[in-house]
Design a protein around this nucleic acid. Structure first.
Lengths: 204, 204, 204, 204
DNA sequence: GATGAATGAGTCTTCATTCAT
DNA sequence: AATGAATGAAGACTCATTCAT
């Protein structure tokens, strides 16, 4: 029986993570000091360190918890993928990402860019990310498979390649939105729609 | 040593940039110390600083020179965009990016991820990047326009939205290749091709 | 370590200032490195920096705290100025300065010279010093005024000009003692006395 | 026979010294970099170093050449000291110092403060300065002697002590003018005059 | 359990001086 | 003789982490 309840522990961890997110996206991973996070969290250095034993752990937690949160939000959309044509499907995912992002003091897209960058030199983070994206791409492959079976895609279409394109569209939407701005989920959906009809004309 | 020739100056700058690239992609922007770069370059601290007056300048140069190099490689492909269907066009761009990347000690995709991350907290870099991507997206919009006029895209298709999708596909290819791997330009092209035919069936 | 007591904080600050004084007057302001001070203080770099956030702050503190200490010592003498003739008054002030100086590892006169030099390029220090000396000169003007009213000075004597001479004598004593040596407060008093009688003869 | 004439050598030395003075008084001795001086002088690094083999030499030259220049200007005044009462004598010296100072890009008073500060940690400079001031004080002692013999000072007055006071007045004028401002040579003379008459009343 | 002061290795950067050309 | 690019030791300061209270 710990001295403080599990609920309290979880609240503390969330409080620290919140502080980390806020600072990370404002200043970047490395320009953020532990002191920044400690001060934002309102806790003491010792307290923060008792929950996250190093800055790297905090970075890891910040990035992977975003990934988990995202997974939760994407799950229902992936579930219903077969009922949607690709363009609407991608649009919905982009919307979920944007919505997730909209919380105050938290921007998933920025965190994502920071995480990708950090993953280059942090093996543990890279592997966790790879697992996440691999599974995600597998789910997209299943969706593509379903589209093919439903006749949405041609018989000869490679589900894996379609999944790669759709993953690229989603990841690229994140980058584009974060760096350039002026991209909305609906633009993406409309653009994909336009491209899909292109094939029809082209092959005619 | 009297005044050094311009050629030598340029060679020195390139030598330093090369050292910076190598270290940046191996260790990340911030985990790379100036000492790393200095040692790799084979020059002295003072010499490096006489060419690039701060680490930030070096980061800026590393990222923007990559962008300029990329622009050069993409230019001919953009020039000939109207002669290619979208799938082949994106495939060619992805190939150019991969080829650019293949040089020893230099990986454009990794540099890109690092640069996007850094752009979040570095205004000068962000603006330079935005300008680059904005121009690139404008060129893609022109290409989409041409496709529409050539009948590759429907009359009602929005060239801007198509450009956004294509930009997302390219940026997302970079992310996917850097983080997950197992994506080749030809996969991308094939996947887009498959998606393009989808519309035909979907609307039937 | 929970919150440290105010007394301890002050002791630490004094400890660091002591170390700074010792080094400054031994090596000069700029030839003294922070490492010198850190080592002399017996604390760590981080600790010193947590009390004085920059070398400039330390210089400022070293100089202005000397000024404050001096003010305290001079106050009673200024208070009693009207009861003393000018020569004895200046002598007493010079004595107070010399006495203040005599502490081990601390020499007010040397600190003064260093401070004057530094004030040329350090605006904050210059202004603080100017305020100190301006007030001091004003006090001397009051003293001169009193002497005039007491008949020690002629009716037509300018209190402001007398104050300027007395201030010059005090500052010049500091310089002369620090650079040349062989000047004692009593020499000063005697010399002024001699000069004061000169007037009598001269006008005769 | 050197490759360049002695006249040219001297001109070069003067040119460098001028550059040093300008920078020293603008930025202080230590904040001035050799590069500052090199650039201001319009010569190359090698050239400057061939005339002054180290920064310390340059500092030494800048300070001592000021002293020599000052000596030249003060000589005639010291020569005629016996014909002037103390107040006018000090006034004339202060004027000479102010006039010397007035040259563009050169301020003797500032150089003096910098030199005194530097003398604390630079033995060669300190000794040269001590010699200069010692001789100067000796000359003042002679002047005091003359005043005594002329009946300007009382029989019992100590010429050495009077010299110390007068030296203090001069040095203190320099400090006061440099730090506080609002002191003119004539104020000094008037103040001393007032003080001199004080004695008459006081002893009455 | 919590606190936050203290630690000290590690960073970026400067600048007096040299010496190949 | 002159040039100015290069050197590299040294300096100010930061910050992740610890541990005495």
């Amino acid at each position: 029986m710990p001295k403080i309840s599990d609920a309290k522990r979880d609240a503390r961890r969330a409080q620290i993570l919140e502080a980390a997110w806020t600072n990370f996206q404002r200043r970047g991973l490395h320009a953020t000091t532990m002191d920044d996070i400690i001060r934002t969290s309102g806790l003491s250095a010792g307290a923060v360190y008792s929950y996250y034993p190093s800055k790297e752990d905090l970075i890891f937690a910040a990035v992977t918890s975003s990934l988990s949160g995202l997974r939760l939000r994407l799950e229902p959309i992936l579930e219903s993928a077969s009922q949607l044509p690709p363009d609407q499907f991608v649009g919905k995912i982009a919307e979920a990402i944007s919505a997730f992002t909209a919380r105050d003091g938290y921007d998933l897209k920025r965190i994502a860019l920071l995480g990708w960058s950090e993953a280059q030199r942090n093996e543990r983070l890279r592997e966790t990310m790879q697992t996440f994206y691999r599974i995600f791409r597998d789910r997209l492959t299943e969706a593509a498979e379903n589209w093919r079976q439903a006749g949405v895609l041609r018989e000869r279409a490679s589900a894996r390649d379609v999944a790669k394109v759709i993953l690229a569209e989603i990841l690229g939407f994140v980058v584009q939105a974060a760096i350039l701005g002026e991209v909305e989920p609906k633009h993406l959906a409309k653009g994909i729609r336009a491209l899909m009809s292109a094939g029809a004309i082209d092959t005619s």
